[in-house]
Design a protein around this nucleic acid. Sequence first.
DNA 1: TGCGAAAATGATAGCGAGTCTCATAACTGC
DNA 2: GCAGTTATGAGACTCGCTATCATTTTCGCA
Lengths: 149, 149
Amino acid sequence: MSFAPTSSTWAATTIDALRGAGFRTGGARRAVIELLARQTCCLSAQEIWDGLRRESRPVGIASVYRVLEVLADLKLVQRLDVGGGVARYEPMLPSGDHHHHLVCDDCGKVEAFSDEPLEDALRDLGDQAGYDVDAHDVVLRGSCGDCRV
Amino acid sequence: MSFAPTSSTWAATTIDALRGAGFRTGGARRAVIELLARQTCCLSAQEIWDGLRRESRPVGIASVYRVLEVLADLKLVQRLDVGGGVARYEPMLPSGDHHHHLVCDDCGKVEAFSDEPLEDALRDLGDQAGYDVDAHDVVLRGSCGDCRV
DNA sequence: TGCGAAAATGATAGCGAGTCTCATAACTGC
DNA sequence: GCAGTTATGAGACTCGCTATCATTTTCGCA
């Protein structure tokens, strides 16, 4: 169980990828990307909006969603649902490394984990089913060590 | 890859479990349970509401959500997110058998699959992380055979 | 460096899933 | 049957997210 936190190069890579795809780079886009680059796990759009506002870099909520949509389409961020009707987003590293999530139903905490055998099993399954799988989410729910006491 | 469809005994078991937990059995509750029992894969609350309406068994949308909430709390149905901001529900069989989902991002189709090695891997992971896991969702996204042509 | 076309941004209205409230209807034990 | 309690349904409401559109910003090009 391990996960290398997002390096600061992700921001640069992402902005390059956007320009390569013909997008211009406005302030909102850069602000969202730079905030995401500093995170180690998933954030909701609201959390991103709050974070930017707290750093005195206010951005329209619509822009936050737009940036996230573009980034998700280009597979530069992963969008995932951990329940509660709120989508969460996190950087996708160019290395292809990624992780999945443990969600505590009691306190709402979200933790990351990664596991290579699990990835292998998932890859095989997609092939087997005739699907061209380009993303997979694994969410384990339960009570974390703290809440179970 | 296999999945035994929900048997009609699930409805009876579920109603018994509700009564055992001190709930009464009104018409809406029974209608939702009986409709769910006939499904082989997950349904959204709206689809359940539409289905009941189509069988001339109209039920308030609030009741549908209430029934689903109670059933999910008692672990008689599994609630899962396959994206799109809509929760889906499906019966949890007493045998403990369950399955996961392949979602086609193009046509929205949802298919079920199950895989024992995957279950083992997930069980091990939960233990390893110190979590008391009581549910897990695995969602593979991509293009299905039909859409990829 | 300055211009203009085209894209990005932000405020706000709109949409839809899901929840809350409360008066009414139905169930259950007696 | 009756009374007490629970379930139900209509509709108002919340909130995450999207669509719209006027304004601002970016960037190729002279």
